[in-house]
Amino acid sequence: MTEMNNDDIIVCRDVHKWFGDFQALCGITTTIARGEVVVICGPSGSGKSTFIRTINRLEEHQRGDIIVDGIKLTNDIRNIAAIRQEIGMVFQQFNLFPHLTVLSNITLAPIWVRKWAKAKADEAAMELLERVGIPEQALKYPGQLSGGQQQRVAIARALAMQPKIMLFDEPTSALDPEMIKEVLDVMVELARSGITMIVVTHEMGFAREVADRIIFFDFGKIVEQNTPDLFFESPEHDRTKLFLSQIL
């Protein structure tokens, strides 16, 4: 057993997850260091989304341990709440709240969870909207924005809680090609800011540019993990070679 190292913000040991009889995760063991940017790739159905959803307990794992920032994930509601406040998540389908303005989408959690005053939350939200490049959309509703703008709002919403970890679940897969770049630009800036990031994506350009490590999943297992250079130039497993030959 590896000892808990203070530089490791996420530790997963032998994580298993089943959906009915289907086993989605078969013994994932990995650690993610503070400030590390990890890209997870692999064919669809390989368990990569399920894996990052177990990290903030949107999915419950049934065997093994997940320790996030020193807190072990159990059914204890207080632990789950504490961990979710440390983790921001960006979804493939944005999942913005359609009945709230862009600004309210971002300030909702700081006001209700962190108990910030509205003025303070508004100010912080406007700063985040500047950062993702759409401050002028603050008072519009999500339905009035393009997909790329919505995803940038979703990133700002996740950042509003000042998380230590950001999870991205295929953030560009639902976007038109010309909008992918505006979202990736924001993510690249974020990756360089030093926050811990786990990104499930097929954008290999992004992976090559900013990832510290790439993890390749297949059939609920980690097949191979390496730095981008080694991963792309000299993959060890045949399955990885086949996958890379198909998407590059």
């Binding site: 903030n56 921001g88 509003a160 809680m161």
Partner: peptide, 29 residues
């Protein structure tokens, strides 16, 4: 959609807040 509830939980809202602020207003409308 389920995503609404997941997004609310992911930003740290508790079950009651998720229902009262996110799901119920949309459902009633």
């Amino acid at each position: 959609p389920r995503g609404q509830e997941e997004a609310a939980k992911a930003v740290g809202l508790n079950g009651f807040q998720t229902m009262a602020l996110i799901v119920m207003p949309q459902a009633l409308r």
